[in-house]
Write a protein that binds this DNA or RNA. Structure first.
Lengths: 204, 204
DNA sequence: GGATGATGTTGACAGCGTCAACATTGCGCG
DNA sequence: CGCGCAATGTTGACGCTGTCAACATCATCC
């Protein structure tokens, strides 16, 4: 490896940061997790990276591009999570596990999930986001078709996504607890919802 | 009626507007429909109401309070839509009609729907929003229980909402069309998803 | 070793939400 | 009837933001 070909990180005192893009993303991720996408500001992440307020514009055309990059990383994480799912004994169990995995992701990184699937970003403007979400959908479609639904199981696949997505949203939404007498058991809700879906799919 | 007890609308030239709150809401709704909640700015709605930039603060403590009012109005509209649903022959058909009605609402007023069910507002801060959404949920719960699910059909009700909500989101999301070979038939998707849910509920 | 492109800085601009101080008006009470 | 008060609207300011243009510094390659 040629170490001189990629500049190492410089400590304070040097004019060029060297790994600014990474530093910006790290700061942005922190702000996102802490206060939602509104809390991610160009000037603030520059401050956290100990860099001038306009430096981020050497790496991102504008704030939206930065957020899109954050979301794209989130999609990669989600895809990796699906890829790392243990081999399931039956297609049914696999679908349940995917749903649980999706909702777990949303619960662990709620603000990132909101950024990825919310209305903040116009995904049509960011091809990387399209590709990433396409991958996830293809994965889901394969699982649904393994259940015995004849390909292309378009509507059924979308219904499955809608189901998991809706459950994730309800689980995240604190509003829910206010509606219920007892606190919500998220795992049980995911499980039950997935089974309703599976039974509904089978008895056609 | 004592007409002098409520000031009438004054035309241009008078110091007091008279119906500023309504005018602000109208302008805000227009901006919302046109460009999403980000496009709703205090100064801009003031401009559209032909009033100074700080006048809205006599009616709303801050921007979020204004948005919350918009959302509350949206919830009322949605509740009215549910209330106006024709009497269904069976509980099953009623559930399908509610789902279709929900998705129709989202399609007709996408930005309002996003505001109501998105992450823009912290609903716990606005009791009116809680009450309104509580009403919708109670309505749904009654319908689910009419299907024969023993009360309180908490998980099943939430699953139903999750389903409809997820479908609405997918239908709104332009990203979907990019995933599919043919354009999405929203009505067919809603119908199919609702039936999957109903069949899954029955075969328990 | 000097030109060149990449990267970071400085300073500016317009726009925003919000507040305080002030102006104007309508309404109720003496 | 008239006065004073509360409601409503205006003006001007503050600090913040995203973004751009002009300039500075550095690494790299002929």
């Amino acid at each position: 490896m040629d170490f001189r070909s990629r500049p190492r990180h410089r400590n304070a005192g040097s004019y060029h940061h060297g790994e600014l893009r990474q530093a910006l993303l790290a700061a942005a991720a922190e702000l996102l997790a802490g206060g939602g996408s509104d809390a991610v500001g160009m000037r603030e992440i520059a401050r956290r990276a100990s860099v001038s307020h306009a430096a981020p514009y050497r790496h991102y055309a504008n704030r939206e591009a930065l957020l899109a990059d954050l979301a794209a990383i989130g999609f990669e994480q989600l895809a990796a999570r699906f890829a790392g799912l243990p081999a399931a004994t039956t297609p049914e169990r696999r679908l349940v596990e995917m749903a649980r995995s999706y909702v777990d992701f949303a619960r662990e990184q709620p603000q990132l999930w909101r950024l990825m699937f919310g209305n903040t970003l116009d995904k049509t403007q960011h091809p990387a986001l399209l590709d990433a979400s396409r991958l996830v959908l293809a994965n889901l479609r394969a699982t649904v078709e393994a259940l015995g639904v004849p390909a292309p199981a378009t509507h059924q696949t979308l219904a499955a996504w809608a189901f998991a997505h809706g459950v994730a949203r309800l689980v995240l939404d604190q509003r829910l607890d206010a509606h219920l007498d007892a606190p919500l058991d998220a795992d049980a809700l995911v499980q039950e919802a997935a089974w309703i879906f599976l039974r509904g799919l089978r008895h056609t």
